[in-house]
């Protein structure tokens, strides 16, 4: 058990570190991450540029720090939107049941019938690339995961006796959903949210890497991998630095999500 605790603490540490960096990015960056300096192109790390410069003479460290802000910020916004959509649709299906539920399930099945990443590529390709279309692509492809789990949980909670007890006391749908159902969903939602954060970072960096995600003036880690791959044989840091940032952050989210899950399972919550 101690090994798990230790791992969990490291994960929280990594997460907190990246979060702080992202929050304080504008004050932390040593140089303007977008400043092109042709005098200092492709430099190895030294006292001036701690992680060297890229092919346009931009400071790699500054870009990494700004990249954290972009990645984490976007992941939070996207995961929140996904959660809201999934929570709403899943609750509607699970709580009201009947034909409405059948319709919800069908829509979920349709969206799951198309691989998420393919739909993301298509949406990002058809809409003008940028923040909003990226957000739309991510939310449209990942709300089903939330909705499915929420629907199942709501279905389970709905059949609990205390719900009938509340109805007998005179409570209406809104009251029960707000004070009891969503409250009971909190552990499941927080677990899914954590895992989703990691997944969003991963898929957005993938899209940015192939050039249809967040667009160049932004310092995204996926973009940095893309720009660095040409020179990485001589300047490996250009590739390893952003890549390991993505990896570490996603790993931290994953470990946190798994330990949250384990905690709620051992607390006796039915959880899939």
């Amino acid at each position: 058990m101690t090994a798990d605790k230790w791992l969990e603490r490291v994960a929280v540490g990594v997460w907190a570190f990246f979060f702080l960096v992202a929050a304080l990015a504008p004050w932390l960056v040593p140089y303007d991450p977008a400043y092109v300096d042709m005098q200092h192109v492709l430099e190895f790390p030294d006292a001036m540029y701690w992680l060297g410069t890229d092919s346009l003479g931009r400071d790699v460290l500054s870009r990494l720090i700004m990249g954290a802000r972009v990645s984490i910020g976007f992941a939070f916004v996207a995961a929140c939107c996904t959660m809201t959509a999934g929570l709403f649709i899943g609750t509607v299906g699970g709580w009201f049941g009947g034909r409405l539920d059948a319709a919800v399930q069908m829509i979920i099945n349709v969206f799951q019938g198309i691989p998420g990443f393919s739909l993301m590529i298509a949406l990002a390709g058809i809409l003008e690339p940028g923040f909003t279309s990226m957000l739309l692509a991510v939310v449209l492809t990942s709300w089903t995961g939330f909705a499915r789990v929420v629907r199942g949980e709501v279905l389970r909670i709905r059949s609990e006796h205390f719900i009938e007890g509340l109805r007998a006391l005179g409570a209406g749908n809104a009251f029960i959903l707000q004070h009891y159902v969503w409250r009971s969903l909190l552990p499941v939602i927080s677990t899914l949210f954590t895992i989703r954060l990691g997944a969003v970072i991963l898929s957005v960096s993938g899209l940015s890497y192939i050039g249809i995600g967040l667009q160049p003036p932004l310092a995204d880690w996926g973009l940095m991998v893309n720009e660095g791959q040409t020179y990485f044989r001589t300047y490996p840091l250009l590739l390893y630095a952003p890549g390991s940032c993505i990896f570490l952050l996603c790993m931290a989210f994953h470990i946190l999500g798994e330990s949250l899950k384990r905690r709620f399972v051992s607390a006796g919550r039915v959880y899939k």
Partner: peptide, 15 residues
Amino acid sequence: SMALTSVPVFWLAII
């Protein structure tokens, strides 16, 4: 297994 699920594949592929 957790490392495998969180590694960015494009990065891994290049390496």
